[in-house]
C-alpha cells in the first residue's frame, strides 16, 4: 500500500542573521492510510516545521515530500494551494475559524473553493457538523461557540473536503480537559469509523496516549517511532 505521506531525507534550515539554523535534519517518514499518529517533541525540536512541510505550508531545504503519491516540494504557490485544498485538512491550535461566518458557512467555505455545488455543500456541512456533534449550532458564529465547539467546527471544516490526511497542530492546547477529552475521542472515532488519517503535532499526553503511532522528534531528527496496537478507547 502506498503511503499517504512519504518524506525522504527532509531537511529545513533557517537563516538567523549569518547563522544557519537546522530545524529538520534528514527526516524519513511514511504515514499510511488510516493511521492515527502523533508527532511529539520538546519546543524547538522541529515538529511544527515538519508538520508545515508535510502540509505544504513550508518548503523543505532538501529532500522530497509526496502527499497521496504527488510530489509537492517543487509545486508552485497556486498548485500547492490546490493540493492543500483537496488533500489536506488542517486543525490549528487557535481554531482559526473565519469570525464573520457561521459554523456551517465555515465548513462550506472550503467546499465552495473546491467548486462544489450549493446543495452538496449544504448536505456535506450538515453531515460533518452532525458527525462532530454540533447539530443545531450550524448558524452560530465562532464568537458564540465555546473553545471546544470551535475546535470541533475546525475538525468538521478539515473533514468536509474529504482530505487524504488531517494535520493537527496542538489541537487540544487551548481547550480545558473536558473539551480536550471530547475532541480526542471525536478524532479517534472518526479515524476508526471513517478511516481518516490523522497526524498531530502535540505535547498533550492525553492525545499521545490515544494514538496508534507515536513519533518523537528531537533536534530535527526522529528520535523514536513507536507503533501501538492497543491504544485506550
Amino acid at each position: 500500500m502506498d503511503p499517504i505521506v512519504a518524506c525522504q531525507n527532509i531537511t529545513r534550515h533557517y537563516r538567523q542573521g549569518i547563522i544557519d539554523v537546522p530545524a529538520v535534519q534528514g527526516v524519513d517518514l511514511n504515514i499510511m492510510k488510516g493511521e492515527f499518529a502523533s508527532l511529539a517533541g520538546p519546543s524547538g525540536s522541529g515538529k511544527t516545521t515538519l508538520l508545515n512541510i508535510i502540509g505544504g505550508l513550508d518548503r523543505p531545504s532538501g529532500g522530497t515530500v509526496a502527499i497521496d503519491g504527488e510530489e509537492i516540494s517543487q509545486l508552485g504557490a497556486n498548485k500547492l494551494a490546490d493540493l492543500r485544498l483537496r488533500k489536506i485538512g488542517f486543525v490549528f491550535q487557535a481554531y482559526n475559524l473565519i469570525p464573520v461566518l457561521s459554523a456551517a458557512e465555515n465548513v462550506q467555505f472550503v467546499l465552495q473553493l473546491m467548486g462544489i455545488s450549493k446543495s452538496e455543500r449544504r448536505r456535506r456541512a450538515q453531515d460533518v457538523l452532525s458527525q462532530v456533534g454540533l447539530s443545531g449550532l450550524e448558524d452560530r458564529r465562532p464568537a458564540r461557540l465555546s473553545g471546544g465547539q470551535q475546535q470541533r467546527v475546525a475538525v468538521a471544516r478539515a473533514l468536509a473536503s474529504r482530505p487524504a490526511i488531517v494535520l493537527a497542530d496542538e489541537p487540544t492546547a487551548n481547550l480545558d480537559s473536558h473539551a480536550a477529552e471530547g475532541l480526542i475521542s471525536l478524532m479517534k472515532d472518526l479515524n476508526r469509523s471513517s478511516g481518516i488519517t490523522f497526524l498531530m503535532a502535540t505535547h498533550d499526553p492525553r492525545v499521545i496516549a490515544h494514538t496508534s503511532r507515536h513519533i518523537v522528534i528531537t533536534d530535527g531528527r526522529i528520535a523514536s517511532d513507536e507503533k501501538r496496537h492497543n491504544s485506550p478507547e
Binding site: 502540509g55 494551494a81 493540493l83 488542517f90 473565519i98 472550503v110 473553493l113
Partner: peptide, 16 residues
C-alpha cells in the same frame, strides 16, 4: 493578516 494566513493554508489562492 493572520486570518489571511489561515485562508491560504486552507487552500485559498493569494489572488482570491
Amino acid at each position: 493578516t493572520r486570518e489571511f494566513g489561515t485562508l491560504l493554508a486552507l487552500g485559498m489562492r493569494p489572488a482570491q
